Amino acid sequence: MRLVDLFCGSGGFSRGAHQAGFDVAASFDIDPILTSSYKYNFPQTELFLRDVSQLDGATLENLAGGLVDGIFGGPPCQGFSDMGRKDPTDIRRQLLGHFFRIVAEVEPTFFVMENVRGLAYAHSKNELVAALKLVEDRYHVLTPRVWDASEFGAATRRNRIFVIGMALLQN
């Protein structure tokens, strides 16, 4: 199974994939500081310092080594966070749409997107709905769910929203 981690940062999602018994073929992030420990923790995974907004599906598949089975990631959350300014002009908010654009281009079997719960609030929900429209015709998308990370072993209470999609069966 070939998995890809978008907006990988230090590799939290990749860690979960590895703990579940999966390998991650490729990870992408633009920030060399946030990813500075990634190669140490995941020496078998190719890390690409790339701007995801400039990445296309064909390039991603090529860099990942072939057809991709799953994409997961957490686009930057600062523009949606309870603690942030919730500035609608924050360009990082656009990266949410790029996550789903890439999913639509690559058409993996499944995707998992994680973000702050503020993404479901009135000031942001339209952006989530618009992003999901990019994949709704090819995926069964579960209703976005907010889960507290402390209920899954994290040492801190952190409410996060998850959007999970599985490819529709083709006739």
Rank of each mutant, 00 (worst) to 15 (best):
V135G: 12
S124R: 01
P76S: 08
S81A: 13
E127I: 09
L132N: 08
E61D: 01
A58D: 11
I164G: 05
Q170K: 15
V135M: 09
S37T: 14
G79M: 09
K125L: 15
E151Q: 14
F100A: 07
K39P: 13
T109V: 14
A25C: 08
G74T: 04
G16T: 07
M113W: 12
T59W: 01
Q54K: 05
F110Q: 13
L96N: 03
M113Y: 02
L47E: 03
D31W: 00
F111V: 11
R101I: 02
L119G: 13
F100Q: 02
V135W: 10
T59H: 01
N115D: 00
L95Q: 02
A122M: 09
A167F: 00
T45E: 06
W147Y: 13
T143C: 10
V112W: 09
D69K: 00
F99R: 02
Q54T: 01
G9E: 07
L128F: 13
I33F: 15
I91S: 07
A122I: 10
S53Q: 05
Q78F: 02
P75Q: 06
A130L: 12
K133E: 15
H18W: 12
E151V: 07
S14D: 04
A167S: 15
V24F: 07
Y40L: 13
N126S: 15
F28E: 01
V103Y: 03
L63M: 11
V106M: 05
T89F: 07
T109F: 13
Q19A: 14
V68L: 09
A17G: 06
A17Y: 09
A155E: 11
L96P: 06
V103I: 11
K125M: 10
V103R: 11
D137G: 12
G118W: 07
F7I: 03
D148W: 00
Y121N: 13
A167M: 14
S53G: 04
P76D: 03
S36E: 12
P75M: 05
K125G: 04
D5I: 04
R15W: 02
K133A: 15
G21T: 05
A25R: 10
C8G: 02
T143S: 15
L67Q: 15
F7E: 01
E114G: 12
Q170R: 14
Q54G: 02
F22T: 04
L168T: 09
F22R: 06
A130H: 04
I102G: 03
E107T: 12
Y121M: 14
I91D: 05
W147P: 00
T59D: 05
N41L: 07
A149S: 14
I164H: 14
L168Y: 11
F110Y: 15
V24N: 09
D5P: 05
A120E: 10
Q19T: 08
E107A: 12
L63I: 08
R117Y: 12
I164R: 12
D69V: 00
F42E: 04
F13L: 15
S36W: 00
V103H: 08
I71Y: 06
G16L: 08
V141Y: 12
